[in-house]
Amino acid sequence: MSDAAIFSLAGAEPAPRRRLRPTAGRLLLGLGLVMLTILVLITLLAPLVAPFDPSATSPQSLEGSSSQHWLGTDAIGRDVLSRIIVGGRTTLFITFTAVSLALLAGLVLGLLSGYVGGWVDEVIMRILDVIFAFPVFLLAIAVVAALGPTVPNLILTIAIVYTPAMSRVVRGPVLSVKKWDHVEAARSIGMSEWRIVTRHVLPMVVSPIVVATSLTLAQTIFTVTALSFLGLGPPPPDPNWGGMLADARQFMELAPLTVVGPAAAIVFATLTFIVLANGLREVLDVGSER
């Protein structure tokens, strides 16, 4: 140690932290995947997992936790735990379908505007800018209120609302990747534009899209439950998390579990995708060079 020195460049980022990053990223990703597995398993197996019929009423209303009803019962005696488990189905179904649609639209529009460029880019981006200019939530309320609160309408609305953001996520990296030499090289060997896009451009932009999709899922869960909370969600009697919160709100002091239960479910699901997104971001090295 007498004449050895240890130093690092660009003081902003001390070396040891950098070296910890991949491990931390993998831990986050692992945690996210475990949470996702729990979420998906419970949702898929909901009818088998739920201890009671979520719509079956009973005279024991607004009961606290018991060995029978772990999270108690609601105002008309339905089992809260069963309703959370089954209600997750509706919320998550809307979320996944809507985000898938937004992703698909974002891929098509983002690739078109980024890769083709020119006036195509101008037109697409201007139209998306108009949608983008509205606050997501306000726009969603307006559209659902206009179309009526059915499940397909909710899905469509949320897909439209998140399409501009997804398009931008795709367009950005496409813009830089299309200037890379290997794209020019592919063109010079006579490859068709479709093949260039699918083989040389898309694979290079997958990582940021995966991360953005995960984050959008988290946001969407929140938007869906919030809309339902405002009464713009799927119609009763099928349970959903936002609706449950809205119903339980007035009995919050009498039966706190009827509020805490669905709230915890929303937080868990949202957190799942945020943790996943951050894990993916670290592991896929999105945001840094390559």
């Binding site: 004449d3 050895a4 020195a5 240890i6 130093f7 690092s8 460049l9 660009a10 070396a15 950098r18």
Partner: peptide, 15 residues
Amino acid sequence: MRLAPEGTRVELGGS
């Protein structure tokens, strides 16, 4: 100059 390439640490010896 005691500069290290980005993202690395350099251990120096000698004088």
